[in-house]
Design a protein around this nucleic acid. Structure first.
Length: 371
DNA sequence: TCTGGGGTCCTAGGACCC
DNA sequence: TCTGGGGTCCTAGGACCC
């Protein structure tokens, strides 16, 4: 989906169309309604806090404002941009609508988060381009939103080429196009090469995917290890055998929060304790609502200097009970130095099972006695 | 005026078991 | 009286993605 969160907001506030708009920050900055019924929006320059940009419209991107940028930095670049808080309920609603629309045409869909999917079109009778246009039309009718589609021999190439003609684009790619269309692109365009690997490749004078394809397998294994080296070697050649996975189970459920100001374990003890308990309750609520229990309880904390650490603990029996989670998370917290200010606290439950299956996994007395 | 929140996957060492 | 070869689970950290 193109600039998904921002585009959903524009459905609601069409008067902002064509303007730089930034989604991010906490739920302050809710638009107010003036006496004449018009909306009063906040400007980015009004923002103060530790948030990051979640999404920006293409007009804001033209001013240098991109996802994951600190809001204060964004405000310097585009002080007059309009600022809206994220409304995840609305985005989830439109996410369901667009996925449903796609499934009505091509049911083999793999979820990749709220605004992205892979579709296996291998067995679809329609020709690629008309099919892409057909899907885009269905998405537009269901949501009023535009998307960009890449059709390629595998997920790796489809992902790259879905990005080549944004927004509202269709890109078709075959293996014959690899050298002309893919090799000139920077290595960071490959899904799986992030900031670290990108830096490391750059230091080795490898900047484009074509330059990556020129490296020997030995060279890549030597610098990136067996698994990642081999993956890089194949990725540069457009090779990817991963199937489109239409069904999956969650592995973990977590909640975390960055404080408005850094808190100290001693002087802010009661405030921290409140937040900690609330996080446990929210995770428990998420588990219960989704019908899962988990037996590994973990915490995450981040110090004021941004060092981050985790601790976890596996219980004998999976739970979705806030008190059990709170107790286990408390045990984890005891194993961590608390002499420095904290900026973030998080609670995670993993090793999940469906609650409906969970009772079966607790062995009966008879099973315990069996040799 | 640095740097969100929700995830997945991988690596690696150690405990423990057969 | 100097050291096996599998395997699984647990824990911690890190890269990466949306």
């Amino acid at each position: 989906m193109d600039a998904f969160y921002a585009s959903v907001e524009l459905l609601r506030y069409p008067e902002l169309r064509g303007q730089p708009v930034v989604i991010g920050g906490r739920s302050l900055h809710q638009p107010a309604t003036a006496a004449d019924g018009s909306r009063l929006f906040a400007r980015l320059r009004d923002y103060a806090g530790r948030g990051v940009v979640t999404t920006s419209t293409y007009e804001a991107r033209a001013l240098g404002v991109f996802s994951a940028m600190g809001m204060m930095k964004a405000a310097k670049l585009a002080p007059d941009a309009w600022l809206l808080p994220a409304d995840f309920d609305a985005y989830r609603h439109y996410s369901r609508l667009f996925k449903q629309a796609v499934r009505s045409i091509a049911p083999q869909v793999e979820d990749r988060g709220i605004d992205e999917i892979y579709i296996d079109l291998s067995d679809h009778p329609e020709e690629s381009r008309p099919l892409a246009l057909h899907i885009k039309q269905a998405v537009r009718e269901a949501t009023g939103l535009s998307c960009s589609i890449g059709i390629a021999p595998n997920k790796l190439l489809a992902k790259i080429c879905s990005d080549l003609d944004k927004p509202d684009g269709v890109t078709l790619l075959t293996m014959e196009d690899l050298q002309t269309r893919i090799w000139p692109l920077p290595v960071r365009k490959i899904n799986g090469i992030g900031p670290k690997a990108g830096e490391k490749l750059g230091a080795l004078d490898v900047r484009t995917i074509g330059e990556l394809a020129q490296q020997t397998l030995e060279f890549l294994l030597q610098h990136f290890g067996r698994s990642y080296g081999e993956w890089l070697f194949n990725a540069a050649r457009g090779l990817d055998e991963r199937p489109v996975v239409t069904q999956s189970e969650p592995k973990s459920i977590s909640r975390e929060t960055t404080f408005e100001r850094d808190l100290h374990a001693k002087s802010d003890r009661s405030r921290l304790s409140e937040i900690f308990t609330a996080l446990c309750e929210r995770v428990a609520g998420d588990l219960q609502r989704k019908g899962y229990v988990g037996k590994t309880i973990g915490i995450k904390l981040r110090y004021d200097d941004f060092r981050t650490l985790t601790r976890d603990l596996t219980l004998p029996v999976a739970t979705d009970n806030p008190l059990d989670i709170r107790r286990a998370a408390g045990e984890c917290l005891k194993r961590v130095p608390l002499d420095q200010r904290l900026r973030l606290l998080g609670v995670k439950v993993s090793a999940l099972q469906r609650k409906s299956d969970a009772s079966e996994s607790v062995p009966s007395q008879a099973e315990l006695l069996l040799d």
